[in-house]
Design a protein around this nucleic acid. Sequence first.
DNA 1: TTTGTGCCATGACCGTAGTCATATTAAATC
DNA 2: GATTTAATATGACTACGGTCATGGCACAAA
Lengths: 197, 197
Amino acid sequence: MFHRDLLITWGGIFRKYQKDQTIFYEGDKAMFYYEVIEGSVKMVNVNEDGKEFIQGIFKRGESFGEPVLLIDEPYPASAVANEDCVLIRITRENFVQLLKEYPDIHLSFTQVLAKRLYNKSLMSKEISSYGPEHRIQTLLQILKKNISTANTDKLKVDLSRQQIADMTGLRVETVIRCMKKMQEKGIINIEKGKVYF
Amino acid sequence: MFHRDLLITWGGIFRKYQKDQTIFYEGDKAMFYYEVIEGSVKMVNVNEDGKEFIQGIFKRGESFGEPVLLIDEPYPASAVANEDCVLIRITRENFVQLLKEYPDIHLSFTQVLAKRLYNKSLMSKEISSYGPEHRIQTLLQILKKNISTANTDKLKVDLSRQQIADMTGLRVETVIRCMKKMQEKGIINIEKGKVYF
DNA sequence: TTTGTGCCATGACCGTAGTCATATTAAATC
DNA sequence: GATTTAATATGACTACGGTCATGGCACAAA
């Protein structure tokens, strides 16, 4: 989100993470602002019996885990490398200072939070009020909207069924069954297991 | 959130709403920043068969519906007067201008969004991963934390079972049954139907 | 006191998504 | 190309929360 050079001048340091490596744990005190340089990161909750809930997936250029830098709360979820990736981080203090010194950046940061809140509202409405099929469709719509820039034709969905399940609070089998139905209805295409929406 | 006088100088106007009156509808374009002066407001989604999902309840001094003022999206939920209330509103343009002119206010606004995002994370994790009882307990904890200031003794919960159901994505009957179990376990007290946590 | 209203309470039944077990297909590794 | 590994697929069974119907209690207004 911030310009790379700016982060470096504010003491930003790069670090590599391997797939499935944890960046921070749920419950940890927040010390750094993180931004994805390469690869992707998921923020995830794991409950007692190992079931995951993915709060969000963050790609190149996106930051994550910042809200708790501004309020005195521990991380509500863990951050895990979704694939091999490179992150840059700056300290909490520098991050806050940076917001104060660059009002424009602060505003665009506020917009990022607003957008996230908006998406979370959409998703929690889904999860609490609708059936699996509807939930999946909404998730796909949100993804498409945030990724493709006004591209009308079908977009390859680069999420596994498991990931979709973990983002909608469903089980893999349910997702698979629903997506099969959705294919029959012509909502999505499935070719060799890959989904196009 | 903002100081009342400040809002007035920025063109703030007061308006009364009666219980159950709608302030704006899901899908509307956002035109104003609203703040609660008296009473309370709920932001709510209603699905086809009339089931409600309450995204949040906002009390005196709190603002609502602001995220979409900063991004180009329609309201993700409707705002309805939870009881008779008085609101103050200023235009979108003035709101944005206000943020730009008062960096301190901007920062505290960002903190409000961060806090809301944090709470939404907690709640969506619950809704998607845990059973009814756990969900209700977490909701109560969030409420207590945000209301009572370090008060250790039991707090009267001023939510109806229906409201709890609408905030957790459950049905009234399920909430009632669960809360009875929770009473037996000593997690909550119920006296004359009123809940103490 | 009576009537009314809103919320709380409880039981019986039902349906959907979860669970578990097992194939099958795709793709990565050698 | 052969072999291993991961992801997708499918079936049978089950449990949990939803649904619907009905009743009771608390409190306010007539």
